[in-house]
Computed example of a mutant assay.
Amino acid sequence: MEDELFETIQKWKREDESRETEECLSGLLHENKMKLLSALMMPLIKFGTGGIRGIVGPGYARVNVQNVQRLAQAFCSTIEEDTGVVFIGYDHREHSKVFAETISKTVVEYSKRHGKDITPEPFPQTVPKQIVSFACKNSQAICNKKCVGGFMVTGAYKPRDYNGVKIYNGTGCQIRAEQEQQVRKRMKELVPTNETVFLWELGDTRIEPSQSLDATLELYQEELSRVFREMPKHKVDAVYTPYHGVCQRYVDMATDCLGLKRVTRVPSQWREDPLFPTIAFNNVEEIEMKNLEDAKRTADKENIPVVFATGPNGDKFRVAEKNSKGWHVFSGDEAAVIALHYLMEKRSSKRQGSAVVMPSRT
Score class of each variant (00 low, 15 high):
8 T>C: 03
9 I>P: 05
9 I>Q: 07
10 Q>I: 09
10 Q>S: 12
11 K>M: 08
11 K>P: 06
11 K>E: 11
12 W>K: 12
12 W>R: 10
13 K>N: 12
13 K>S: 12
13 K>Y: 09
13 K>M: 14
14 R>H: 09
14 R>S: 07
14 R>K: 10
14 R>Q: 05
14 R>I: 04
14 R>N: 12
15 E>W: 13
16 D>I: 06
18 S>V: 02
18 S>D: 08
18 S>N: 05
18 S>P: 06
19 R>M: 11
20 E>H: 04
21 T>K: 09
21 T>S: 15
21 T>D: 12
22 E>F: 14
22 E>K: 15
23 E>W: 14
23 E>I: 09
23 E>H: 13
23 E>D: 15
24 C>E: 15
26 S>D: 15
27 G>R: 08
27 G>K: 12
27 G>P: 07
27 G>W: 13
28 L>T: 03
28 L>Y: 09
28 L>V: 01
29 L>N: 06
29 L>R: 04
29 L>T: 08
30 H>L: 08
30 H>A: 15
31 E>F: 05
31 E>C: 01
32 N>W: 00
33 K>R: 13
34 M>G: 05
35 K>Y: 08
35 K>W: 01
35 K>T: 11
36 L>I: 11
36 L>N: 06
37 L>Q: 14
37 L>A: 12
37 L>T: 10
37 L>V: 12
38 S>C: 05
38 S>A: 08
39 A>T: 13
39 A>K: 14
40 L>Y: 15
40 L>C: 08
40 L>Q: 07
41 M>N: 13
42 M>R: 14
42 M>Y: 06
42 M>F: 07
43 P>T: 09
43 P>M: 10
44 L>I: 14
45 I>R: 11
46 K>S: 15
46 K>P: 09
46 K>W: 12
47 F>I: 01
47 F>Q: 00
48 G>H: 15
49 T>N: 11
49 T>W: 01
49 T>D: 08
49 T>K: 09
49 T>M: 09
50 G>T: 01
50 G>A: 07
51 G>Y: 06
51 G>P: 02
52 I>W: 07
52 I>V: 08
54 G>L: 02
54 G>P: 02
54 G>T: 05
54 G>W: 00
54 G>K: 03
54 G>D: 05
55 I>Q: 13
55 I>S: 10
55 I>G: 04
55 I>F: 07
55 I>V: 14
56 V>M: 05
57 G>T: 02
57 G>C: 03
57 G>D: 08
58 P>E: 04
59 G>D: 10
59 G>W: 12
59 G>R: 04
61 A>F: 02
62 R>A: 04
63 V>S: 00
63 V>R: 02
64 N>E: 05
64 N>H: 04
64 N>V: 04
64 N>M: 02
65 V>N: 10
65 V>Y: 09
65 V>Q: 13
66 Q>R: 03
67 N>D: 07
67 N>L: 13
67 N>K: 07
67 N>M: 12
69 Q>R: 15
69 Q>N: 07
69 Q>F: 06
70 R>D: 09
70 R>L: 03
70 R>A: 03
70 R>F: 01
70 R>W: 03
71 L>N: 00
71 L>Q: 02
72 A>T: 11
73 Q>W: 06
74 A>R: 00
75 F>G: 10
75 F>V: 01
75 F>P: 00
76 C>D: 03
76 C>P: 02
77 S>D: 06
77 S>T: 02
77 S>H: 03
77 S>C: 00
77 S>G: 01
78 T>E: 14
78 T>H: 06
79 I>L: 07
79 I>W: 07
